[in-house]
Amino acid sequence: MSGGELVNIGRIAEKISDDLFKFFKWEIVGPSNLNFLCVKKENHAKAKNGDHHHPTDVVFRYFDPYANKVVYMHTDLKSYAKGSIGATEIRKALVSLAKSIDCACISPDWRERYLLIRGEKYIISGMLFVFNHDDLYDRDFYDHFKDLKSESLHVKAGQQMHIVEPALINYIATLRQDINGLIANNTFPKRKYTFLYPEMTLHKAAGDYWNRPATMEMIASPYLIIHHGEVFDTDEDGVRVKTYGEGYLVYYRRSGASEYEFMYLFDALSRFQILNGDKEKKIRIRIICKDSSDRLMSNYRAAIANYVREWNEDEYRRSILERIELEVVTMAVHNYKAEHVGWDR
């Protein structure tokens, strides 16, 4: 494989990460693909002669409403063919990332490049982004962790590392493609949307409501709830007209193989005051799962019947549940090929 093609394959992960995370209200900060000086060489590379450096592929920044802090996501971007994804490669990448985060927390170099606001409350976390560029990987990624022990990864107490693996990347890519389709059909706004952070007993969400981003934990969770405003378009006479009402979009990642899945989801929506709120607000559940059940729709209808029965045949609750629109979304097929990326400028 030529050097140019290797560079292009490396750029695939960089390009797709930027394409995907913008929708979640993340931003890229500072320079990409630039190493920073290790300030813990005795711990991180004792046997090495001379200076040691840590890689920085890209740093994302977003505000965490529950933590009331800014998260700086120090990211290692990997692009592998199917046969190159193995336990050895993943372990090496995680060890390198753990050491990078450990150093970044006290590195003057790192702070000078990536911290936007001096004195802000922030957390530095790590993200290993594992993209399968030939789209042939079909294993459970976490099989690679059966023999990995956390103590061998050099993760310090309090450090957080997230893994965005091929299945999660495909989910995010499908969600983004679906959102683009809804925007094109004038049923989702381009700008006025936010990610839902319910008020909890121990956690209160901070920050401007309509500007709240999705945290990494939220993106990787079984469901993602988006609250959106009304949708408007301009007709042929230049008049602004409403094309879709305010509502909630719920992306669900499970297969729907059991009615109890949906009953649990209804329970969550009820706790978050979505089922009990303004009946004019539309609720849409959109399933994104590669292995969705053939009985998904039957299980969903059974879940409505059983949920209403548990509420003593509450017809008002039944009417709310039956107004929910449910749709299974076709999985996206990425088109990030090395030769295509090579033509980008």
Rank of each mutant, 00 (worst) to 15 (best):
S152Y: 15
E165W: 08
D178G: 10
T187I: 14
A220P: 02
F195Q: 07
H144S: 01
I117K: 13
S152P: 08
A98C: 11
L115Y: 06
G158Q: 06
S152W: 14
T194Q: 14
N180H: 14
E165K: 05
F129I: 02
D138L: 12
T194G: 05
R139W: 08
S107R: 01
A173M: 14
I106M: 03
F145L: 04
S125V: 07
F129M: 00
C105G: 00
Q160H: 07
D102V: 00
S125C: 07
T194N: 13
L94Y: 06
Q177C: 11
L136F: 09
P166R: 09
N170K: 15
P213N: 10
A214T: 02
A104S: 11
Y209K: 12
L224S: 10
I219T: 01
A206M: 13
R139M: 12
V164C: 10
I124R: 02
N180E: 14
Q159P: 06
L97K: 02
A220Y: 00
R191W: 08
I183Y: 11
V95F: 06
N180W: 10
R118Q: 13
Y223Q: 04
H133E: 10
L175F: 13
G126T: 04
T187S: 07
K99A: 00
V95Q: 08
W110V: 00
D147F: 13
I163P: 07
R111I: 01
A214F: 06
E112N: 11
C105R: 06
T201D: 11
E199I: 12
A93H: 03
L115M: 06
F145Y: 11
C105M: 01
D208N: 10
S221Y: 13
L97P: 02
N211V: 05
R139I: 01
I163K: 07
R111A: 09
I179W: 01
L196H: 14
A184N: 15
R176M: 12
L97D: 00
Y142K: 04
E112M: 06
P213C: 10
I117Q: 12
F141A: 03
E151W: 15
D102H: 05
A184W: 15
G158I: 03
H228S: 09
A214V: 03
L97Y: 04
L196V: 15
H203F: 15
L148C: 07
D109G: 12
T201I: 12
A214M: 03
V130W: 04
A98K: 03
A206N: 14
N185F: 09
A98G: 04
F131C: 08
L94N: 01
P198F: 03
H154C: 03
I179G: 01
I123D: 12
P198A: 05
I101G: 04
T187C: 07
N180T: 13
V155W: 10
L168K: 09
E217K: 10
I169T: 08
